[in-house]
Amino acid sequence: MAVCSIIEASMTYTKEDGYVGKVQFSVEGHVNQYEMTLHSRKATEWGYGLFFLNESGNEEQLLELEEELEENDELFDQLVEAAKDKLVRL
């Protein structure tokens, strides 16, 4: 299981856009840091995008992390919760 350290997180809510969040984090053993963007209309089903944070990096590690996020609900929920903890309603 990947061990993540949250660098920064944020989330906003508007009636028009729903919930839009962002989590910046590092993963133990990975050279690069990541950013995950989140979107949900009702804060139940989450769509996301996973990107390198500062510069392009090891594509293989990114794909491994993406696979883990798909299979590991606990890890995914940890990142979603980090963003939800910073929720600002606009």
Score class of each variant (00 low, 15 high):
M1T: 09
M1H: 14
M1C: 03
M1G: 15
A2W: 08
A2V: 13
A2I: 12
V3Y: 04
V3D: 08
V3G: 00
V3R: 04
C4L: 14
S5F: 08
S5A: 11
S5L: 05
I6E: 09
I7E: 04
I7M: 09
E8A: 04
A9V: 11
A9H: 14
S10L: 11
S10D: 02
M11W: 04
T12D: 09
T14N: 12
T14H: 07
K15N: 07
K15G: 04
E16K: 14
G18T: 13
Y19I: 10
G21F: 13
V23R: 01
V23E: 00
V23S: 04
Q24A: 06
F25C: 09
S26G: 05
S26D: 14
V27H: 09
V27I: 06
V27D: 07
G29K: 08
G29N: 07
G29T: 12
G29W: 12
H30G: 03
H30C: 12
H30Y: 13
V31G: 01
V31W: 05
N32H: 10
N32Q: 15
N32R: 11
N32P: 10
Q33K: 15
Q33A: 04
M36Y: 15
T37D: 04
T37A: 07
T37N: 06
L38R: 02
L38Q: 03
H39W: 15
H39N: 03
H39V: 02
S40T: 09
S40A: 08
S40K: 07
R41H: 10
A43V: 04
A43C: 10
T44N: 02
T44C: 07
E45A: 11
E45H: 13
W46K: 14
G47T: 08
Y48C: 11
Y48Q: 07
G49A: 04
G49P: 00
L50E: 08
L50F: 05
F51W: 15
F51D: 13
F51I: 07
F52Q: 00
L53Q: 11
L53N: 12
L53W: 05
N54E: 12
N54H: 12
N54K: 03
E55Y: 11
S56G: 01
S56R: 15
N58F: 03
N58L: 00
E59M: 01
E60L: 03
E60P: 01
Q61N: 09
Q61E: 10
L63P: 00
E64L: 11
E64V: 06
L65R: 07
L65D: 05
L65F: 03
E66N: 06
E66I: 00
E66S: 11
E67R: 10
E67M: 05
E67N: 10
E68C: 08
L69H: 13
L69I: 14
E71M: 02
E71V: 00
E71G: 00
E71T: 02
N72Q: 06
D73E: 12
E74N: 09
L75D: 13
L75W: 09
F76G: 07
D77I: 13
D77E: 05
Q78L: 03
Q78H: 09
L79R: 02
V80T: 13
V80Q: 01
V80A: 05
A82W: 03
A82Y: 01
K84L: 14
D85V: 00
D85A: 03
D85C: 02
L87K: 07
V88A: 12
R89K: 09
R89F: 07
L90W: 14
